[in-house]
Simulated assay, not measured.
Amino acid sequence: MMRAADTALLVVDVQERLLAVQPQGARIEWNCRRLLDGAKTLGVKAVITEQYPEKLGPTPKVLLSCTDEPALEKIAFSCGERGEVFAAWLEAGIHRVLLAGIETHVCVQQTALDLLAAGFQVLVAVDAVGSRYKVDHGVALRRMEASGVLLTTTEAALFEWCERAGTPQFKAISALAKQTPPAGSEMV
């Protein structure tokens, strides 16, 4: 199971132009925001990346406001290009990474495979990732799972990080779990 102390959250390329072409863009953004809020509440390290922001636009402010760190720019599809992040996590005793973001079959998948190769246990929040086409999304999830990536959901991840009820952190996580999804969001 994930623990707040040994897991990092990596939100991959949830940028305005990419969100605009996602059939479930509102759901992806909403779940990424809940994951970032939960990470902040529970002390989980979180990083946001941006793929070629000059062309694909910035990360929505609602997501950037959930972290004290600016988004890390990259040109390669895999976040492995920002290997200094992975190295810092290993140094801090973090050996699990939860992935969220866009697109499942490109940047998320390539990052997952690179993280596996670097020795991390990798999880993907299936309701916080997406691709323009269902076939790309579905095949990428199956390929990642066959490669050793564990599939989970936003709510499951939040409660794993939280571990127990009866704490102020549980109250905050419970409030995140009770939020209503955006209208028209198909839950995976």
Rank of each mutant, 00 (worst) to 15 (best):
R3F: 12
T7Y: 03
L9R: 01
V11Y: 01
V12I: 15
Q15S: 02
R17N: 05
L19W: 02
L19T: 04
L19V: 13
Q22K: 05
Q22L: 12
R27F: 11
I28V: 15
I28P: 02
C32D: 05
R33A: 13
R34H: 05
R34I: 04
G38S: 11
G38Y: 07
L42Q: 15
G43Y: 14
K45F: 09
A46W: 03
A46D: 03
A46C: 09
I48Y: 06
Q51S: 05
L56P: 01
T59A: 11
S65E: 15
T67V: 15
D68K: 10
P70M: 08
P70S: 02
I75M: 07
A76W: 09
S78H: 00
C79M: 10
G80Y: 04
G80N: 04
R82T: 00
G83C: 05
G83H: 03
V85E: 07
A88E: 12
L90R: 15
E91P: 00
G93S: 01
G93A: 01
G93N: 05
I94S: 00
R96T: 10
V97Q: 04
L99D: 04
L99R: 01
L99S: 02
A100S: 14
I102H: 03
E103N: 13
E103A: 11
E103M: 01
H105I: 00
V106I: 15
V106K: 00
C107M: 06
A112S: 09
A112Q: 04
A112M: 07
L113M: 14
D114N: 13
D114F: 05
L115Y: 09
L115Q: 09
G119A: 14
Q121N: 11
A125N: 05
V126I: 14
D127P: 08
D127W: 11
R132I: 08
K134Q: 14
H137V: 06
R143C: 02
S147I: 04
G148D: 12
V149E: 12
V149Y: 09
L150Y: 15
T152I: 03
T154R: 10
A156Q: 07
A156K: 13
L158P: 04
L158H: 07
L158A: 06
E160F: 08
W161H: 11
A165L: 14
G166T: 09
T167E: 05
T167L: 05
P168C: 07
Q169T: 08
K171F: 09
I173H: 07
I173T: 10
A177C: 13
